[in-house]
Computed example of a mutant assay.
Amino acid sequence: MVNTVFKALSDPTRRTILDLLREQDMTAGDIADHFDISKPSISQHLTLLKQADLVSSKRDGQHIVYSLNLTVFNELLKWILQFQSSKGSEPQ
Results as ranks from 00 to 15, higher is better:
Met1His: 13
Val2Pro: 00
Asn3Trp: 14
Asn3Pro: 01
Thr4Asp: 15
Val5Arg: 04
Val5Tyr: 02
Phe6Leu: 11
Lys7Val: 08
Leu9Arg: 05
Leu9His: 03
Leu9Thr: 02
Asp11Val: 11
Asp11Phe: 14
Pro12Asp: 00
Pro12Cys: 00
Arg14Val: 07
Arg14Ser: 06
Arg15Gly: 05
Thr16Gly: 00
Thr16Gln: 05
Thr16Ser: 15
Ile17Gln: 06
Leu18Asp: 03
Leu18Lys: 01
Asp19Ile: 07
Glu23Pro: 00
Gln24Thr: 08
Asp25Val: 06
Asp25Gln: 10
Thr27Gln: 01
Thr27Asp: 02
Ala28Cys: 11
Ala28Gln: 09
Ile31Phe: 03
Ile31Cys: 01
Ile31Arg: 02
Phe35Lys: 01
Phe35Val: 07
Asp36Tyr: 10
Asp36Val: 08
Asp36Ser: 07
Ile37Cys: 03
Ile42Val: 14
Gln44Glu: 06
Leu48His: 14
Leu49Lys: 07
Leu49Tyr: 13
Lys50Arg: 06
Ala52Ser: 13
Asp53Trp: 14
Leu54Met: 03
Val55Arg: 06
Ser57Asn: 12
Arg59Phe: 02
Arg59Glu: 10
Arg59Ile: 10
Asp60Pro: 00
Asp60Gly: 01
Gly61Asp: 05
Gly61Ser: 04
Gly61Ala: 04
Ile64Lys: 06
Tyr66Thr: 06
Tyr66Lys: 07
Ser67Arg: 07
Ser67Leu: 06
Leu68Met: 11
Leu68Trp: 04
Asn69Val: 06
Asn69Pro: 10
Asn74Asp: 14
Asn74Lys: 15
Glu75Tyr: 05
Glu75Cys: 13
Leu76Ala: 02
Leu76Ile: 03
Leu76Ser: 04
Ile80Asn: 01
Gln82Val: 07
Gln84Val: 12
Ser85Phe: 15
Lys87Tyr: 15
Gly88Ala: 02
Gly88Thr: 07
Glu90Pro: 02
Glu90Val: 12
Glu90Trp: 10
Glu90Ile: 09
Pro91Cys: 05
